[in-house]
Amino acid sequence: MIRALGAFGLGVARLTGALALVLARTTLNLPRLDRRELFRSIVLFGYRSLPLALMAATLIGSTVVLQAGVYAVKFGARLYTGWAAGYALTREFGPLLLGLVMAARIGARNAAELALLNVNGQIEGLRGISLDPFRILVAPRVVGSAIAITCLGSVTFLVAVCFEAVSSYFSLGLPLRVFFDSYQDMLRVGDLVGGLTKTLAFGLAIALVSTVAGLRAKGGAVGVGQAAASAVVLSCAAIFSLDLLLTPFLTRLFG
């Protein structure tokens, strides 16, 4: 038991160390990022994930209305559906659910790619010809996927809110104007900023965690699979933990 705890503690410490290292070296490399690689990762992680994010957005929007709407009707607050659904979406469900889906899509892919380079010895190879793999490979990916996830987040919010309006029209018979009125009256810019802050944090966490998971990979096909799998799981854990840490802070800041 004590040994298991010790191993767990050691694992956490090692992971934190690796995360800090990647974060520090990425920050150091910010002024001289490899532009082409940055562009490539934004396209790869952002643009290519757009269909998935849109699909997730429609589903998340409709689900939140179903959930919030039923209770709004139950408590005679049908008119507030727009606000409730919008608030829940921007402040909590949008970032959280999008984060979980992107942990799968972007986290696993990033980890798998880096793991592959690592297992094939290509990262060592870059060092061998005295190129810094962090500047060329790692930092652009971290920055690129964080940017990509934040952009996807904004698009997702927009689409999800529209789908909320439409689905509350169909399921609750709520006119679109009423939905957006209550949305406008009660939702403030702060809510949107709060939601996007969360999305940015989750995006950064996914990028860092999956990079560390990929760089730690060892040993062929099995190693690549394990790296991708642990990237997804650790990203999910990081998202829930960050959500807990950020929410009290954001509620105080933006109400």
Binding site: R105, A112, G220, A221, A228
Partner: peptide, 13 residues
Amino acid sequence: APAVGEAVTAAVV
């Protein structure tokens, strides 16, 4: 190995 990485990504998605 590349196929394994792709499979995991696609599976979780």
